[in-house]
């Protein structure tokens, strides 16, 4: 059998829709885990069926709750608006076009005090599963189903090998690894899916590695 019984009896999720609620919550949760902390506003650009039929399925609440760090099975999702208010986070929803993307897609943009922004694009692809397709302008393609280590770095020789060496030293096996860059010598991203969660010590060590700008470990 090539299908997991836990994809059949599961996921454990907040209703009513695996694609419009659970997938939305998961996408925003992963986006917030990747984005820098301390945002004061979050903007949701909804495309396709997210924009058309999302509201009746609580897509708005699921996205907002995920951006606020609630996991996809947290019953607090239905009170996402009150939670955002309590935390002083403002939010905005708009309809956008995301050409060539899946039916249920969104761009989630985090805004910071100094005017900086960070955005993540991705899709809910059915059964509560997601695909992250863009990290602040860098193409990506990962599901966050396995523990995932994401770094953004200056595109210099030796950075990627420094990352993989650190993982090897801690006996973390790499399942899938992808490197993407905007232009030669500019900013690049590395997305590594691992068999075991990446310990905090590795994240800290990577943060002090030359030429690495951002590091985060995502595990849903």
């Amino acid at each position: 059998m090539n299908i997991s019984i836990f994809d059949v009896t599961g996921p454990v999720m907040i209703g009513p829709s695996s694609s419009h609620t659970a997938g939305a919550a998961r996408l925003a949760y992963v986006a917030a885990a990747i984005a820098p902390d301390g945002f004061w506003q979050v903007k949701f650009g909804l495309a396709g069926s997210f924009a058309k039929t999302g509201r009746g399925h609580g897509t708005d609440k699921a996205l907002l709750a995920g951006a606020l760090g609630l996991s996809p099975d947290d019953t607090g999702i239905r009170d996402a608006y009150a939670l955002a208010k309590a935390r002083g986070i403002s939010y905005d929803f708009e309809t956008i076009e995301l050409p060539d993307s899946h039916e249920n897609s969104a761009r989630i943009t985090f805004l910071y005090e100094g005017g900086e922004t960070f955005y993540v694009e991705g899709s809910s692809i059915g059964g509560g599963r997601i695909l992250v397709t863009n990290l602040n302008g860098l193409a990506a393609e990962f599901s966050a189903e396995s523990p995932t280590l994401i770094t953004m770095q200056y595109d210099r020789q030796g950075v990627v090998s420094a990352i993989t060496q650190l993982l090897a030293e801690q006996n973390i096996n790499i399942g899938v690894m992808r490197v993407n860059r905007t232009a030669r010598g500019d900013v690049a991203s590395t997305v590594i899916e691992t068999d075991a969660p990446v310990p905090e010590t590795i994240v800290r060590a990577l943060k002090s590695t030359p030429n690495i700008i951002r590091v985060c470990a995502v595990s849903v």
Partner: peptide, 14 residues
């Protein structure tokens, strides 16, 4: 499920 409570999809949420 309709009230955004916690359920286990089996095989779907609906």
């Amino acid at each position: 499920n309709a009230s955004m409570g916690r359920i286990c999809a089996a095989p779907t949420a609906g």
